[in-house]
């Protein structure tokens, strides 16, 4: 589904990302972990063509991301609050995204109905602008907006941060369901090792922009990751 080859991103001669080869098959739930500055968000931004690769390329479903825009209809993302439109209410925002993705009001409503649990009655009909919601609730709105329009690739940067425990657990259920039953490719980055190992079939560890581990998740993975990161901390 997503094929990364010889991808390098440098800022002022400092290489922040260097991925020789990384292939993510369709329907995989893919986890990206790494300390601050490891290049997770950079990679996601390159995937969304928000920044330009210095060399190399990413192909999403055989579309060259930096050349064509044809990847947009089947890709959606929530990276940070700058993906929200602060002066809209949650509903207005969902409908706006829906309109951009060719969904009418009924389609969006039907989708939202599935996430009543996840919203926990804190998002819809609140008569509040998104900018006035708490960080956690903003995130909830952003994540659900990324599910509108049946995307085949969903990119979520740090989706678990700022969420309350109940919502974290529900989000895990949602991500698993997307990948396993709907065949959606989900890319998640996180600092929370427990959550990623729970959710993702495959985990890639980035360090200083390079892939240093590529693991298929098994019961031992969490321990391995913890050992790895505590080792990093000691060095």
């Amino acid at each position: 589904m997503i094929k990364t080859s010889n991808l390098i991103k440098t800022y002022n001669e400092v290489t922040v990302l260097n991925i020789e080869n990384l292939e993510i098959p369709k329907g995989q739930s893919f986890g990206l972990v790494g300390n601050n500055g490891a290049g997770k968000t950079t990679y996601f931004s390159l995937l969304l063509d928000l920044i330009q690769p210095t060399t190399g390329s990413i192909k999403s479903k055989d579309v060259l991301v930096s050349e064509s825009e044809d990847w947009k209809p089947f890709t959606s993302a929530f990276i940070d609050e700058s993906f929200l439109i602060g002066y809209l209410t949650a509903e207005e925002y969902f409908y706006f995204i829906g309109e951009l993705r060719g969904q009418n009001k009924q389609d969006v409503d039907a989708l939202l109905a599935q996430f009543e649990d996840f919203f926990h009655d804190e998002i819809l009909n609140k008569k509040k602008y998104l900018r006035d919601l708490s960080k956690g609730n903003q995130k909830k709105a952003g994540i659900v907006a990324a599910l509108i329009g049946n995307p085949e690739v969903i990119i979520l940067d740090e989706p678990f941060a700022n969420l309350d425990p109940t919502t974290q657990i529900r989000l895990k259920g949602i991500i698993k369901d997307l990948a396993q039953t709907k065949g959606v490719t989900v890319l998640v980055s996180s600092h929370d090792l427990l959550h990623v190992t729970d959710v993702c079939e495959r985990i890639v560890v980035l360090e200083k922009g390079e892939v240093i581990k590529d693991l298929a998740t098994n019961p031992e993975t969490l321990k391995e990751l913890e050992a790895h990161f505590s080792g990093v901390a000691e060095v």
Partner: peptide, 12 residues
Amino acid sequence: SEYYKMLMSQNI
């Protein structure tokens, strides 16, 4: 500008 990144990742 506040949500330009989002607009650019959408098919607009």
